[in-house]
Amino acid sequence: MALHVKTNVNGDAAEFLCEPDETLLDALRDRLGLTGTKEGCGTGDCGACSVILDGRLVCSCLVLAAEAEGRSVRTIEGMAKGDELTTLQRKFLEHAALQCGVCTPGFLVAAEELLRRNDNPTEEQVRYWLAGNLCRCTGYDKIVRAVLDAAKDMREHAHA
């Protein structure tokens, strides 16, 4: 029997009908049309479907859509303000930190959460925080540089 779920996505009220075994990932993509969140594995092993659920970074493929009732979800679509990219998004472009781009939304969501918690991470901290996000194109080098550079920019901006 379909469930009626009321939730909040990127600051806006959202509601949808879903099956009891439907994942949050499928609901975001198929019910709400938010296809920026990607499915790479469906088993929590690649991080392409990363979203923030009530302040925690999670794989939306491992969350049931029904669990989102009354909670708040943040996805890649909630990141840029209008046509203004976030520092992280800008740094990903400047550093050529994406090739095919399919893992990019997941990396951005994960990296944003890292920088919210730690504005001055070491390279090692970045690498371990992002270990759940697989990228097959870049070898991670430019991604790590983009995150470190974004952190630096954001610190300087905060202190300016």
């Binding site: 890649i76 990903f92 472009l93 951005l108």
Partner: peptide, 9 residues
Amino acid sequence: DGIEKVTGR
């Protein structure tokens, strides 16, 4: 194609 890819579009 960068902006489309960092915004999920």
